[in-house]
Write a protein that binds this DNA or RNA. Structure first.
Length: 778
DNA sequence: CGTACTAGTCTTTTT
DNA sequence: GACTAGTACG
């Protein structure tokens, strides 16, 4: 049993505890994938378990892929028949076989978030719901949370009692469900929910899978939601050989329904569970670990554990504060370029992490400017680009005639002179006849009021029919090519003068290569499978490991990865931790951000650089943010705190007031944690809420920064919370530059600013933010 | 029916 | 600031 010798005693213990429930609390970098891989190998090799009986659930396809390869190399062969997959792809596989029990067609389509939004929009229109009152997004996220908790729309309605808003959402939930059912479509959450429903409704199906999956392993268990928990519980309830691996300190998906008590209460649910803690870290230097431990220690709700390493102290953590986000980007690229030049690292060993995708733009520009090879993970998913969604909509139309959404998307793409009015007429007809949109199109000549457009519809239907006949004989690549040439999609792009037409064509070619690769790999693969696979890819899945490129991604995206050099950009209050978490009345919101910081820090093996900018443009507003509390939570002796060049902050050659050489760097660390700033009142040490600037108007562009700084100062003085109270009150008469005179009806304090409701004599009631509106009291 | 402009919204984070 | 949906016009 040679391969067990490479494990430490704890790891070995986890590997060999094969029977019964097992909770592995695996700190960052403690070799948990290693343990899982060895455990699978051990089950097969030593315990004689049939690979067929093993199920391993990972978070991403990439992780699944990696696990399978590593098992393969360890045990030779036999790993093929292990189910290693994500929750979502596993559910798709199960549902494809059995969903007819629930009254769906087995070739159901999967709706992504965009699709769901489109459906919801149509519902809003149809039920004439005012999206000022409630937003589609809000409804969808309520539905999604309900599904994460396995709450059906009936239960939802019951729970909300007489709450009007809840009632509206409940009704929309029901309508939404019906719409999806009609389209024979499932959204992401449904994949889990319907599988649970299937298992509950069809015990013989459940038993079938219980027999099959006698040994179940779940990775990243801290990120499972209630529905996923139920799914796993059902599967494991017969043999109880359930092994879950996770780290409560790395739970960062609460917004997606992750239920941290799944891991915290595992021992309550499975009293006979064995618990193994992995605390030896094989990844990072002691300094990095100390920093991570110090930060996470500020959280209250956690299982106590502490990482250690025998790797040695390592460098101190580099903290750099720069003036602007531009300089931040330059600092990153300069540092990477320098280190590579000196032979200290290669591009592929570096990663830049940030809180929000929006931050990637400036960084990307710097990488382009410096000619440093890079890869951005995340942002707009490849498969959600317009041109890709268009082509996929053709495939979906070919494949699932009830997918109204797909049909409507492409009926006039490329332009066929089939406009909104026609689409509406067809929709009405479909609704009245109880037909799908496509079925209605097939009867175009019977639809009243269409006139000669009917022939265009018929032409469209015939085209789709031709594609359908090709489906059986063609591979997916050929089918896509046929779609492109018949519709003239690419031709239209080539002729268009749109700036990004070339990129689009490039993307379509990329899609064709992916289809080709699919055709080759999955000789049995059907169009249905291709579409399902495509809707379940995460961005991280397509990252090539061996490319020598710097990876840029969000902190969320970085979970599970490691790099020799890590840069965390935007370590500022209001950015990371983000505004929303700072103002959340629930204090655990900040704890989630802190876990994210913990994840970020522990990605680094050797060198960790944290950057923060004094000034940054967010959503068109210039913000001046204090250094992130997470930086301050790192013991000072672990930081090099090298000031980022003691320049004065200038703009257009003008010196800005309030910045003295080096003053900030010193003060930032002396001030007490969490915004209790020293007595000096320059804008930088104001709390985030004091630092939001009014939108810059064209008239005062030139010296805008110094103006902004000056007014920031006065804002701090004016209100203790940093938000200037407008110089008027409810009942006052005010003058607005555009709307004229009016009466103030209401003033309320929002997180960012005072919200003022004014009844204007000329234009009626308007709601506006005080800082923007610049109302004058009369 | 299609285009060109305007107004409003938006950002956390993702399978 | 960037994007998108909505609207007015040709």
């Amino acid at each position: 049993m040679g391969y067990l010798d490479t494990l430490n005693p704890r790891q070995k213990e986890a590997v060999m505890a094969t029977d019964g429930p097992l909770l592995i609390l695996a700190g960052a970098g403690s070799g948990k994938t290693r343990v899982l891989v060895h455990r699978i190998a051990y089950l097969i090799d030593k315990e004689g378990v049939n690979p067929w009986n093993i199920l391993a659930i990972t978070f991403t396809n990439k992780a699944a892929e990696e696990m399978r390869t590593r098992v393969d190399t360890l045990i030779g062969q036999g790993a093929d028949s292990i189910w290693v997959s994500t929750f979502h792809s596993m559910c798709v596989r199960i549902l494809r076989r059995h969903i007819d029990i629930l009254g769906y067609d087995n070739n159901f389509t999967i709706y992504d978030t965009d699709d769901s939004k489109t459906v919801m929009k149509e519902l809003f229109k149809r039920l004439s719901i005012d999206n000022k009152y409630i937003k589609e997004r809000a409804v969808l996220s309520a539905i999604s949370s309900a599904k994460d908790e396995l709450i059906s729309c009936e239960e939802y309605k019951k729970n909300c009692g007489s709450d009007y808003r809840g009632e509206v959402i409940g009704n929309l939930y029901a309508e939404y469900e019906e719409a999806l059912h009609k389209a024979n479509a499932l959204d992401f959450d449904d994949l889990i929910v319907k599988t649970v429903e299937l298992f509950r409704r069809a015990p013989q199906v459940l038993e079938n899978y219980q027999e099959r999956f006698r040994y179940i392993m779940v990775d990243e268990y801290q990120d499972t939601n209630t529905a996923q928990f139920e799914l796993v519980s059902l599967l494991a309830s017969k043999y109880r050989n359930l092994c879950v691996v996770g780290d409560d300190d790395q739970s960062i998906y609460k917004f997606r329904g992750a239920n941290i008590s799944n891991i915290l209460d595992f021992e309550k649910v499975y009293p006979e569970a064995k618990v193994v803690k992995l605390e030896q870290n094989y990844r990072s230097t002691q300094n990095i670990l100390d920093a991570a431990n110090a930060v996470i220690a500020n959280n209250s709700e956690r299982k106590d554990k502490s990482l250690w390493t025998d790797k040695g102290q390592g460098s101190r953590i580099h903290f750099r504060q720069v003036d602007t986000a531009y300089e931040e980007a330059d600092a990153v690229t300069d540092d990477i370029a320098g280190a590579v030049r000196k032979g200290q690292t290669r591009y592929g060993d570096c990663a830049v992490l940030y809180r929000t995708n929006a931050q990637s733009r400036l960084l990307e520009e710097a990488f382009v400017r410096e000619g440093i090879p890079y890869n951005i993970v995340g942002g707009v998913n490849f498969y959600s680009r317009r041109e890709i969604k268009d082509i996929l909509a053709y495939l979906k139309t070919i494949e699932n005639a009830s997918d109204d959404l797909a049909v409507k998307r492409i009926i006039n793409v490329p332009k066929r002179s089939i406009g909104q009015t026609t689409v509406n007429k067809v929709s009405d007809y479909a609704l009245s006849q109880g037909l799908s949109f496509f079925a209605a199109l097939c009867e175009a000549d019977r639809i009243p009021g269409l006139g000669k457009t009917a022939s265009k519809l018929t032409a469209f239907v015939n085209m789709i029919r031709v594609f359908r006949s090709e489906e059986d004989m063609f591979g997916i690549r050929q089918l896509i090519e046929s779609v492109i040439s018949t519709t003239g999609y690419v031709k239209e792009l080539e002729e268009s003068d749109e700036e990004d037409a070339e990129d689009r064509i490039e993307n379509i070619n990329e899609l064709i290569s992916k289809a080709e690769a699919y055709d080759e790999e999955e000789s049995e693969g059907t169009l249905t499978d291709f579409l399902a696979e495509v809707s379940l890819v995460a961005d991280i899945d397509s990252v090539e490991d061996d490319a020598d490129k710097v990876l840029l991604m969000t902190l969320h995206g970085a979970k599970g990865l490691e790099f020799s050099r890590v840069y965390i950009a935007g370590a500022e209050e209001g950015v990371f931790p983000g505004m929303a978490s700072i103002y959340d009345e629930d204090p655990t919101a900040i704890e989630e951000e802190r876990r994210l910081a913990y994840v970020g820090i522990t990605r680094a093996k050797d060198e960790l650089t944290i950057l923060s900018a004094k000034m940054r443009m967010i959503r068109g507003e210039t913000q001046y943010n204090a250094v992130s509390r997470f930086v301050k939570e790192i013991p000072e002796e672990l930081l090099d705190n090298r000031p980022a060049g003691n320049r004065q902050l200038t703009y257009d050659g003008q010196r800005l007031d309030g910045y003295e050489e080096g003053s900030y760097e010193r003060n930032a660390f002396k001030s007490s944690p969490y915004g209790g700033y020293a007595d000096r009142s320059d804008a930088f040490r104001a709390r985030p809420k004091a630092t939001i600037r009014p939108k810059i108007t064209p008239e005062d562009t030139k010296p805008y920064i110094s103006k902004a700084v000056a007014s920031a100062g006065s804002a701090v003085k004016a209100g203790g919370n940093g938000i200037t109270h407008p110089g008027y009150d409810v009942g006052d008469r005010v003058l607005h530059t555009k709307y004229g005179e009016g009466t103030v009806k209401n003033i309320s304090l929002e997180p960012r600013d005072y919200k003022v409701t004014v009844e204007f004599d000329a234009v009626g009631q308007k709601i506006m933010y005080a800082a923007f509106a610049k109302l004058k009291k009369l």
